[in-house]
C-alpha cells in the first residue's frame, strides 16, 4: 500500500491505472515525456523502474533517453521518498545568504546526507536549484510549501512541527 498525499490509500494497480490514463491523455502531444514523468512521480511518490520502462515503451522513447531526463532534473527521484520532502535551495541567492549553513543544520538534525531518507521515513533531504523566491533567501521547500529566510537555529523547531503533525495524524488514525 502506498499512501498518497491526500491520505487516501490506493493499491499499486490503481495507481498504475491512473498513470495509464495520464499517458493516454498526453502521449500524442509534443514533449509529453516530462508531464507524464511528473504525473508518475506525483502518483507513486517516486519513479520505479517498471514505471519508467512502461513509459519508455508506450511513448517509443529509448529507456536510456527516459533515464537521461529523469537523472537531469533533480525533481525526479528513483528511490522512494519519505513522507516529507525537504529541498534546500542552493541557488546563487540562497547560497550567498546562508543556504549552505541551513543545509548543514538539517543534515545535523536529521543525521542524513543529501538524497537520503530518515530511518522513520519521515523526511527526505534534497537540494534545489532556485525556486524563484530569491528575495526571500535562503529558502527551504518542504513538500509544496516554501519557508523563507530560514535560520539554522530555527531548523529544529521547523522539523518538529512536521514531526508533531505526523504524530497527530497517527493518533487520529
Amino acid at each position: 500500500m502506498i499512501t498518497e498525499k491526500t491520505g487516501q490509500s490506493q493499491t499499486e494497480e490503481e495507481l498504475f491505472q491512473q498513470l495509464v490514463n495520464a499517458i493516454n491523455e498526453l502521449k500524442d502531444k509534443d514533449g509529453a515525456l516530462i508531464p507524464i514523468l511528473q504525473s508518475a512521480q506525483n502518483l507513486f511518490g517516486y519513479l520505479p523502474e517498471y514505471v519508467l520502462k512502461h513509459i519508455s515503451s508506450t511513448l517509443n522513447i529509448p529507456y536510456s533517453e527516459v533515464a537521461g531526463v529523469v537523472t537531469f532534473y533533480s525533481f525526479f527521484s528513483t528511490t522512494p521518498r519519505g513522507k516529507n520532502l525537504l529541498r534546500v535551495c542552493l541557488g546563487t541567492a540562497c547560497y550567498v545568504r546562508g543556504g549552505k549553513e541551513v543545509l548543514a543544520a538539517i543534515k545535523n538534525e536529521l543525521k542524513i546526507d543529501i538524497g537520503e531518507t530518515t530511518g522513520d521515513k519521515l523526511f527526505t533531504l534534497e537540494i534545489g536549484r532556485c525556486f524563484g523566491a530569491c528575495s526571500l533567501a535562503p529558502v527551504v521547500m518542504i513538500n509544496d510549501e516554501v519557508f523563507q529566510r530560514v535560520k539554522p537555529a530555527r531548523i529544529r523547531d521547523l522539523l518538529n512541527s512536521f514531526r508533531n503533525k505526523d504524530e497527530m495524524e497517527e493518533d487520529h488514525e
Binding site: P62, Y63, S64, V66, A67, T71
Partner: peptide, 25 residues
C-alpha cells in the same frame, strides 16, 4: 545508435559536470 540504428542504447545521463554518456542510469 539512435538515428542510424534505432537502438537508443545510450543517452546522456545525469547533469552538468556529472553528465556521462551511457545506458539508463
Amino acid at each position: 545508435c539512435t538515428g542510424l540504428q534505432k537502438v537508443g542504447a545510450i543517452s546522456p545521463q545525469y547533469r552538468g559536470f556529472k553528465t556521462s554518456i551511457g545506458p539508463a542510469f
